[in-house]
Amino acid sequence: MNTEAIAKRLVQLCREGKYEEAQTELYAKDAVSIEPEGLPPGALGNVKGLEAIYEKGRQFQAAVEAVHGGSVSDPVIAGNWFSISMQLDITMKGRGRMDMQEICVYQVKDGKIVREQFFYDLG
């Protein structure tokens, strides 16, 4: 698949809440996942490898008490890169309800996502 096809498929699966299926189908085994600098202690940070990305997603899901809504934008594509904006209205265990908004940037190489990086306000 080319970058546009991968981007559209990722958006489709994310809109369906099938995040791990998206990772299995679209990510390289040695993909990296990068969070913003300055995360608080105990936060899910940077990881390398598909298994670590799965675990990061599972830990996030385990911290979610309820999902009230959300959205995923259409992708913006530039060469081997694409970005989407994501919004989640969720209640986190012990932290209450919050509106999470982020820009997600992805790099594609050899038909797979090799890098994801998230940009959002901390706190």
Rank of each mutant, 00 (worst) to 15 (best):
Q107R: 15
I84E: 13
M100G: 10
E20M: 09
V32D: 05
G57A: 09
V72T: 14
L10Y: 11
R97G: 12
M92S: 03
Q61W: 05
I6G: 05
M92Q: 10
G96M: 13
A22Y: 07
V76G: 01
L88K: 08
M86H: 02
S85W: 01
D110L: 06
K8T: 08
L39W: 05
S73M: 04
I84H: 05
K56H: 09
Q23C: 12
P40L: 09
T24S: 11
G17H: 10
R95V: 05
R97P: 08
E102L: 14
Q87T: 09
I113R: 00
K112G: 03
V108C: 11
M100S: 13
A52T: 04
V105M: 15
G70E: 07
S71E: 13
V105W: 07
K56L: 10
A7T: 12
P40G: 06
G57N: 14
A43W: 06
E4M: 05
A5C: 01
N46Q: 14
G111V: 15
G49T: 09
L88T: 03
E55G: 02
S83G: 15
V67K: 13
A28H: 05
D89Q: 06
Y120P: 14
G96D: 10
Q101P: 00
V76E: 14
M100W: 11
S33V: 00
A78F: 05
C14T: 03
L44A: 03
D89M: 06
M92H: 02
V64L: 10
K112I: 06
S33C: 01
M98R: 10
I53V: 12
A66F: 13
R95N: 09
G57R: 12
A7H: 14
G123M: 07
L50R: 15
Y27T: 01
I77L: 04
F82Q: 02
Y106K: 01
V67S: 15
G49F: 12
G45S: 09
R58H: 04
K29E: 15
K29I: 02
L122S: 10
G94Q: 05
G57L: 11
V105Q: 14
D74K: 10
R115A: 05
D89W: 02
E55T: 09
V11Q: 03
V76R: 12
S71I: 01
R9D: 05
D30W: 02
I90N: 12
A78E: 12
Q101A: 08
R95M: 11
A63F: 00
M100N: 14
E21F: 01
K29A: 15
Y54C: 06
E25Y: 04
G57S: 11
N2H: 00
G70Q: 07
K29T: 10
V108H: 04
E55Q: 12
G49A: 13
M98H: 07
I103Y: 05
G79N: 13
M86G: 08
W81T: 08
L122F: 08
Y106D: 01
A5T: 15
D110R: 11
G45Y: 08
F119A: 13
V76T: 09
Q117D: 02
A22F: 01
I103W: 00
L88C: 06
A66P: 04
V67D: 10
I90W: 11
L39C: 06
T24M: 02
E116M: 07
V11P: 02
G123E: 08
D30C: 00
A43Q: 00
P40H: 10
A78V: 14
A28M: 01
L88Y: 03
P41Y: 06
Y27I: 00
L10I: 03
K48L: 09
